[in-house]
Amino acid sequence: MAKRSKHEFKSNTMPAIVTVGPVAILLLFLVVAPLIFVAVMSFCQTDEFYNVVYKFTSVNYGKLISTDYLKIYAQSLLIAFITTVLCVLIGYPFAYIIARTKSKKKQLFYMLVIIPFWTNSLIRIYGWRTFLGSSGWLNKLLMVTHLVNEPVDFLYKTGTTVLGMVYCFIPFMVLPLYTAIEKLDGSLLEASSDLGAKPVKTLFEVILPLTSSGIFSGCIMVFIPCLGYFFVSNILGGGNTDMIGNLIERQFKSANNWPLGAALSIILILVTLILVKIYQKLGGDMDNLGV
């Protein structure tokens, strides 16, 4: 009878520990531990010097139920929603044209979407502020062509914030859409046309259903980060309309109320988890989320 080799693994644990182990430890330190820290802090208080006092209190969460905070949450959700919808409406045709063009310039067009990404988005948003200001180029153009007599107030409105957000997030929408649309089998579109469907019908019957995973991916990739953004509403919105991000940022900086900031962050994380769960339930592709 042949003896079993000493080196034969009886289970899969050893290889698993060696390969996944280091990453797991990294995640533990970089993700899990800080999260626990934030969660703990959300139940703490501050003294008059803004120092954190480690005494349990639920006052921070209590504050969140006040109408002011709820209003800010609602506003953020609304702005994030509008931004997402606009990103889909603008991003889809864009992605479609790039994905299905037979032109040799296809790579170039794709790069044109990605390249602005390489510049810090903060700087690009400042660029928008200069461009839209009363003495900015847009107003100058409008005045020179006599379309208006006085500079138009583009800046410091909720709409401006949405514009900035859409601008920042369009690539996040276009990329997953592009991937999904490229995979679309051209012969399906021909078949649809052959069977009597006009282009609009083909869009709704064939193209949209088959690229819905891309749309889903794109929506998640836009909506969730959008909730947490604060610098766009600061710079383009004039600091007028607070979003959750602004609120949280303020607690950790000028208001010096870290426990409250921690509580707000925990809530934001929970909201995000719920959204991802809904996405998953609706059949979203969890593997391509990182596209």
């Binding site: 410091y156 004039g238 600091g239």
Partner: peptide, 18 residues
Amino acid sequence: NVVLYDSDSPKSALISGD
């Protein structure tokens, strides 16, 4: 009444006319 909250460089808004 307020369109802009700015402690960084509030003069910019006045100079630009915003």
